[in-house]
Amino acid sequence: MKLNPLLRKIFLVDLVKGLKVTFHYQPPSEAITEQYPLERPVIFERFRGQPRLNVNPDTGESLCIVCNLCALACPEQLIVVKGERNPATKRKEVVSWTYDLSRCMFCGLCEEACSTDALELTQDYEMALYTREGMVLDQAALERGQEPEKYAK
């Protein structure tokens, strides 16, 4: 319905329209707020969170072959991998593996570079810690996943 602009102004048509919109949003079921600790957020399949180093489920050995591709792919250069060739098996084995989570931006390039699917960004998202030092994860932490830190005064 087209109304004369002057009449629109006099009868406050546009204002009433706006009022209608806000009125209809009122039922609490419309609210999109997520009550976090009570309600877990829906995590999508390709969400990138807490990094993990996968192990071979049968043998418990690390899948990492110390190829250093992830460290090269990382734009923040926060991955440092050191390895040594085991003369017996003629395979490189991890000596130290560190992942500085405090600088990570979860771009997922390391995960893409990994040739053995050892490094993976999982869907965990609760990574808050009380210290910066705790953010630097070593191989053990990466393999078993970060333990939630107990709150204490």
Partner: peptide, 10 residues
């Protein structure tokens, strides 16, 4: 409360 609900909050 009402303002929040109008703005689709809780």
């Amino acid at each position: 409360k009402i303002l929040a609900h109008m703005q689709i909050r809780l």
